[in-house]
Write a protein that binds this DNA or RNA. Sequence first.
DNA 1: ATATTTGACGAAAGCGCTTTCGAGAATGTG
DNA 2: CACATTCTCGAAAGCGCTTTCGTCAAATAT
Lengths: 334, 334
Amino acid sequence: MTTIYDIAKKTGFSITTVSRALNNYSDVSEKTKKLILDAVEEMHYYPNSVARTLSTKKSWALGIIFVEDLGIGMKHPFFNSVIEGFKKSVEKKGYDLIFLNRNVGGVKMSYLDHAVHRGVDGIAVVSSNYDDSEVEKIIASTLPNVIIDLHSTKSNVVYSDNLHGCELAIEHLYSLGHRKIAHIAGHPKTFVGLERLKGFKSAMKNHGLDIHKPFIVDGGLFSAEGGYNAMLKLLQMKDRPTAVFAAGDNMAFGAMKAIREAGLKVPEDFSVIGFDDIELAGEYTPSLTTIKQDMDRIGEKAAEVLLQEIDHKFEPSTCIIPVELIKRESTKSI
Amino acid sequence: MTTIYDIAKKTGFSITTVSRALNNYSDVSEKTKKLILDAVEEMHYYPNSVARTLSTKKSWALGIIFVEDLGIGMKHPFFNSVIEGFKKSVEKKGYDLIFLNRNVGGVKMSYLDHAVHRGVDGIAVVSSNYDDSEVEKIIASTLPNVIIDLHSTKSNVVYSDNLHGCELAIEHLYSLGHRKIAHIAGHPKTFVGLERLKGFKSAMKNHGLDIHKPFIVDGGLFSAEGGYNAMLKLLQMKDRPTAVFAAGDNMAFGAMKAIREAGLKVPEDFSVIGFDDIELAGEYTPSLTTIKQDMDRIGEKAAEVLLQEIDHKFEPSTCIIPVELIKRESTKSI
DNA sequence: ATATTTGACGAAAGCGCTTTCGAGAATGTG
DNA sequence: CACATTCTCGAAAGCGCTTTCGTCAAATAT
């Protein structure tokens, strides 16, 4: 590995001058700068980021953690989309992404401790869970951070406009003539589960529809199975809904499967609308009408906010990313 | 941030002794060791990994890169599954994962240079492309590395048993009575595209079926669109195949869409079989018969091989991960 | 008793880089 | 011409840790 000393030796300047030339200091003449940069090129030298970090306290690395109970981690379609958007944005600014976990060399430590141990410049958290002590610790810390899909007044947060999304969904179903609308809710320990339930209720109210309690069924952790089981309950009722608004696409798929297995059809017998617009939504048969979350934008925005906190100083911000109704085949007028 | 000096000051020992106590050296008495560890606990001290890395040349970080032309990065279902498996395995051994890209602070550099710059202990590459100069550079380097979904005799490689997978697919279709079997091939610049094409031909031969050239159509970069377009060509033929083997699930979905739009049905008019078993495969209607790749296992195996190269020394290995036929609704007997 | 080994610890160098401080040369000012 | 400035550059300290080498006292051997 070639070091700054090698460049110094080769050019005859001191390592101080080499360092200055590399970092564009003004007090090094154009001539020697060129000499040095040529040598750098020739010897294929790249500064060692570890050494640089040690002396500057700036690692140009960002930590990312995700908290979810399914154990699918990066396979989670929402997470990986958001992270991809985040990653692309921060890379443009010269940051690397590092996954933080909770054990270092066999020793369990908190995410925050791990982040400090690694010397990252900031942390992005994608969390589905409501009160997570790990996340709270990060929020309370002085390390710049941004939280995705969770609300807090004490930190930077970024999430979709869940309430408006629900409004769009109910509005759409209402305009198709549906009045008996069920909601397959996300788990109450998740922020978006709660938000969308709230949004559902408020949207129903706004349309002058009253909320039939049994029509609100728990769909669990946003999985297809959860949606399937929830739909089974709805199918057992004598007075069934005509439309189902699921708090997540996967739950909508599960619901449609239950409907199909009951010998009924979507959208003829039930209109179904989801939330997320995961890739599968457009491919499924029938394709799924849903509320599209702009995951790329969420990731980008999170990057923007985090880098801003790192560069300048801190003031908690809340970014609500717009959502959009995507009309497809799974909903029709009554 | 508390440092080793703080612990030294508090306990009255030298930093040398503190360091030794932390690293379980034998030449520190049990008594002082306990004193030091207590102070560590109390002061909530964690060694700074940057400083440690600088002096030990071991970063406990692994770089990961993926090379693909679709620009979807982490959203790629194969990539993220493999990476999740890889991540879980290496984390257990105390390694962190860091995404490598090609620019550092505005300066374009190669993946390999970036890895060296960051001081990672090894690199995992997930590459769909055949000859990538970046990947070749990594293979040729002395930095421990493992390549997923690509073959090379000069490095550690891990990939699915594509050939046997094709054998299973054709065997299945054959056993259902199909004789006119088409293949929607993956892009010839991808390793798996070529492998599966080869596997298709060889399997056909093994079953005494001759290969009708026009029945081999290019499906592009494994996308649904590619499969859709390929299927259109197949549908235009006067003498159509009765079964279609797509080199990837997404292409199979595209093909099924084309079939549906042509007013035909799967599996009544065409049997369709895919390759991958992505999550969607089981959810789709009709659910897709496919060859299941064990992405978790691929990730785990890659981790195993890479860590072994890091710890011990190097001998190029090729790991072929078994695949499995998953029978679902999209295939039926003729 | 003296000589030798062992056990427990500290001083100091070094990892590769940045940055402060200051010095000498070149330039400008009166 | 003497002086103050401005340009260029180098010496050295420091970032937080590991590790080599050595020291000194206690334990053991002779």
